[in-house]
Structure formats: structure tokens, C-alpha cells
């Protein structure tokens, strides 16, 4: 069974002063960091955009709709290239040069063989792309609530922002926990596309280890297992959260 030999993971890797296991671990670390940073952007922007789309105010809903249409209809990989290669060329030259030459050296990333600029571009790209998906989920969460709730709120003398704050959003955010879980898992999986602009996250590290050692089976089995374990953990935690915040008699509670 020499094709299933995991011992090489403890050998010293050619760079970074780490073993191959260390490479893999730094890949896991950067996958998580990129995903979580992008998720902060995606969730906050997505929630705002989703709410904007449901309002009856045209100058709020139209820009949000345009945003969603653009970001959902361009492949993520292409968007990665747009942020990394194209954006610095389209802004004023001085700013573009600063972004490419000065900015990457503001901060040296730990355990990373890539620069701050690659990391930032990946986070912005993933965050803004996923925001469009989150916005759709938030919108359908709000729209799934009976219209009577909005009307009742307005009839009670609430202003529209108050209706959102006290009536619609508390309900909608509970409803969208399951779709938000899958959106987070999507961002977690999609973070692998950052490898095309040089971010050495888990998938990129697996490819790199394979290139150096030719231990294809063990390398990809371990990397795949890490993805599956993290996915299962997130699903498990979110089910707990869903049960904790469930409103009795409204959202179906556990059991499946």
C-alpha cells in the first residue's frame, strides 16, 4: 500500500520552514480566515441589500436589484480576476501603483506565502459576490412573512424603519438561519477559487504538496476530509443555534 502512505506529511517542506503537515495546516487556517472575513462583508452588505430590495422606496430597491443582477451573473473566477488584475488598472494610476507596490508590504501575513493584496482582493471578491446571494435569501425571508405583519405594524403607528426593526427583521433573521448556514458553507467552499490569484488556502496547498511529493491520494484524501469535517461541524452548530432562537409554534423545530 505504498500509494496510501501518510508518513511524508512529517517531512520538511521546501519552504516556509514547515513540514508538509504545516503547509496543510496553514492552508486550513487561511481558508478559514478568508471565509470568515468575506462572510462579515457578505452578511452585513447582503442584509442591507436584501432589506433595500423589499422596501417600497424605488431609489433603494432599484440599485439593490441592479447589484444583485450584476454580481450573480458573472462567474466567481472572472470576478476574482476583475478585482485582482483589472481594478488596479482602472483606478487613478497613483492609487493603482500604491495598491500593487506599497499596500502588500504594509503587513506580512503569518504562515503565508502570498501578500496582503492577494488576500484583500480575495476577501473583497468573495464578500461582494456572496452578498448578492445573501441579499436574495434575506429578501425571500422577509417576503415570506405575511403582508399583514407590515400593515399591522404601520397601523399601530410604527414608522417603516420601526416595522423592519421590531416586526419584520426579528422574524426574518430566524427564518433565514438554514439558508445562511448554506451560504456560509458556500463561501467556505468558494474560498478555494482564491487560489487563482495566488492565495495558498487549503486546496492550493493540497495541489502544491502534490506537485512536490506526488503523493496524490494521501494529500487529497486529507484535504477533502478537512473540508467535510468543517462542513459537518458548521451544520451541527447552526442546528443548535436554530433550536435556541426558534419562536415556538412558528419555525419548525428540529426533528429533521
Amino acid at each position: 500500500m505504498d500509494w496510501l502512505n501518510f508518513a511524508f506529511f512529517l517531512e520538511k517542506a521546501p519552504s516556509g520552514g514547515m513540514t508538509y503537515l504545516g503547509w496543510l495546516a496553514s492552508g486550513v487556517l487561511w481558508t478559514l480566515i478568508v471565509s470568515i472575513c468575506a462572510w462579515v462583508i457578505a452578511f452585513s452588505l447582503g442584509a442591507v441589500l436584501g432589506v433595500m430590495r423589499t422596501t417600497p422606496i424605488k431609489w433603494l430597491s432599484v440599485p439593490a436589484t441592479i447589484y444583485v443582477d450584476i454580481f450573480r451573473n458573472i462567474p466567481l473566477l472572472v470576478q476574482m480576476f476583475l478585482w485582482y488584475f483589472v481594478m488596479p488598472e482602472l483606478i487613478p494610476t497613483a492609487m493603482g501603483d500604491w495598491l500593487k507596490q506599497t499596500y502588500p508590504y504594509l503587513l506580512t501575513l503569518p504562515f503565508a506565502q502570498f501578500s496582503l493584496w492577494e488576500f484583500t482582493a480575495a476577501v473583497i471578491c468573495l464578500g461582494l459576490y456572496t452578498a448578492s446571494r445573501v441579499a436574495e435569501q434575506v429578501r425571500s425571508g422577509i417576503q415570506s412573512l405575511p403582508r399583514g405583519q407590515t400593515n399591522a405594524g404601520l397601523a399601530m403607528g410604527f414608522t417603516l424603519p420601526q416595522v423592519y426593526r421590531h416586526v419584520l427583521l426579528p422574524m426574518a433573521f430566524r427564518l433565514i438561519i438554514p439558508p445562511m448556514t448554506s451560504e456560509f458553507l458556500t463561501i467556505f467552499k468558494n474560498s478555494s477559487t482564491a487560489l487563482v490569484i495566488g492565495v495558498l488556502e487549503l486546496t492550493a496547498q493540497a495541489r502544491q504538496i502534490n506537485e512536490y511529493t506526488f503523493q496524490t491520494f494521501p494529500t487529497f484524501i486529507v484535504a477533502t476530509a478537512v473540508y467535510i469535517v468543517i462542513t459537518m461541524t458548521v451544520i451541527f452548530c447552526m442546528r443548535l443555534l436554530e433550536k435556541r432562537v426558534a419562536v415556538p409554534g412558528y419555525v419548525s423545530q428540529g426533528g429533521h
Binding site: 467552499k189 486546496t203 493540497a206 496524490t216 491520494f217 487529497f220 484535504a223 477533502t224 473540508y227 467535510i228
Partner: peptide, 21 residues
Amino acid sequence: DAIRAIPFIMAIFWFYFLTPK
């Protein structure tokens, strides 16, 4: 469940590196 838990690129790499073997 397993396929849906891994990145698409990972699946592409699996077959790219493994089918020759």
C-alpha cells in the same frame, strides 16, 4: 453529502490528478 461538502475545484483536481493514475 460528501460531494456537496467539498469545493468544486477540489473535485476537478481529484479527477485531474487521479484519472491518469
